[in-house]
């Protein structure tokens, strides 16, 4: 793994995971890896990891199946994570409404910006976190 911090080139990673036991760990680890590459401090990385988890879970709600599609983009000192949930065809209404007040509050506390919308009929959400302290 490269040890160069502070890369300016855009780094983009796509990840698609089934909604099932403990695979959110992949979403978290990917976020941590991208942020680690970008020279984020460990405190920021922990925040980002919790935020990505919150983002995923708020989209999935109580659903037990379907897939999460995540894209991670790192540009300069900011990481943007977008997440889209596609259910498995069960017409039980959009589970994206699992985004309760607490989720929003947690995201407010952990990242710089976040938002959500329905994209192509699928509940989607994104967040952006900037590196809070510039490594020397």
């Amino acid at each position: 793994m490269s040890t160069a911090g502070g890369q300016t080139a855009t780094l983009a990673v796509d990840l698609s995971i089934p909604v099932q036991a403990d695979l959110v760990v992949l979403a978290r680890l990917t976020a941590a890896t991208v942020a680690g590459r970008a020279g984020f401090g460990v405190e920021d990385i922990e925040d980002l990891r919790l935020a990505v988890e919150e983002l995923c879970l708020s989209l999935v709600g109580g659903a037990k199946d379907g897939r999460l599609h995540l894209t991670y983009e790192c540009e300069g000192d900011a990481i943007t994570v977008a997440c889209r949930y596609e259910d498995a065809g069960t017409p039980a209404g959009p589970p994206g409404q699992g985004a309760d007040d607490l989720s929003l509050r947690i995201l407010d506390a952990l990242v710089d910006e976040h938002g959500r919308q329905i994209r192509d009929g699928h509940p989607s959400a994104w967040l952006c976190k900037r590196r809070s302290d510039q490594p020397a």
Partner: peptide
């Protein structure tokens, strides 16, 4: 670091 955070079970796990 990942191990250090434990993991969240919630509805998924």
């Amino acid at each position: 670091l990942e191990a250090g955070q434990g993991y969240r079970t919630s509805s998924i796990d």
